[in-house]
């Protein structure tokens, strides 16, 4: 087929593909069928107002909490990914530190309803207005725009799984110690992804994916907004934010 790289067999690629899908399935909550059933279960007007009345600090704590839960699932996804645990510990940490938030943003498209521009948050679907008290309308709007653009691609669960793996296994992250090893794993993932797309007649998808810079920009925007929040609420962060969130972003 011309797809196989000279260093890995078709069987290896097949196993890698199965592994990516299994890792994704085992670490993605809620399941796709459940998300589909609940996609019209939106917050009532009163519930939205109650969220809007919450103090900025409480809303930041809530969002940091939900984001941290999602990141913990991404860590589990990485651990189950064939080859990830064979990388040195420095590189495992580098890849997760740089990529976990990006993977969360990609995964978010699963829990996003593009028809009414809402996302699953604390049990129901919420529009941008629910997050008003965070004080970062532009960031929230950009994240929703990103989810909307991914939803327009009508990604299958398998495609989301591969996209997440490819976002995570990025040999261009600074401070990697074994860059070549990461690049080899990334290469095998790309071969497996292309094979899936060829089988499903979706080769055109690669050209329509958002550029990597868009995810990077969203992550930088998040850190900038966090810094702005900390300037407004000095001392808030150590007290109530999840330790993993502080470790990754503060």
């Amino acid at each position: 087929s011309g797809l196989e790289s000279p260093t890995c067999s078709g069987m290896e690629i097949e196993l890698l593909a199965q592994d990516v899908l299994r890792s994704h399935r085992e670490t993605s909550q809620p399941r796709a069928e459940e998300l589909q059933q609940r996609r019209w279960d939106t917050f009532s007007r009163e519930e939205v107002c109650a969220y809007q009345r919450k103090p900025m600090q409480e809303m930041w704590e809530r969002c940091a909490g939900r984001l941290t839960e999602a990141i913990q699932h991404v860590v589990e996804f990485a651990k189950r990914l064939r080859g990830f645990m064979e990388l040195c510990q420095n590189d495992q940490i580098v890849l997760l530190k740089a990529g976990a938030m990006e993977v969360v943003l990609v995964r978010m498209c699963r829990a996003f309803n593009p028809d009414n521009r809402t996302v699953l948050f604390e049990g129901k679907y919420a529009g941008t207005e629910l997050f008003r008290s965070l004080g970062c309308h532009e960031l929230v709007g950009s994240i929703f725009d990103f989810a909307q653009s991914l939803c327009a691609l009508r990604l299958s669960e398998s495609e989301v799984a591969f996209l997440c793996a490819i976002v995570l296994i990025n040999a261009n992250r600074p401070w990697l110690q074994e860059q070549a090893k990461v690049a080899r794993l990334r290469g095998r993932l790309e071969v497996a992804f292309r094979l899936l797309l060829r089988r499903t007649h979706r080769e055109g998808l690669l050209a329509r994916l958002p550029p990597a810079g868009r995810l990077r920009a969203l992550c930088s925007q998040h850190v900038e907004q966090l810094q702005a929040f900390r300037r407004l609420h000095p001392g808030a962060l150590p007290a109530a934010f999840p330790p993993l969130y502080r470790e990754l972003f503060a």
Binding site: R80, L244, L248
Partner: peptide, 17 residues
């Protein structure tokens, strides 16, 4: 790096699933 990211390091260590 492991020192600065103890929680992440611990999560990675917990059960090589």
């Amino acid at each position: 790096l492991q020192e600065k990211h103890r929680i992440l390091h611990k999560l990675l260590q917990n059960g090589n699933s």
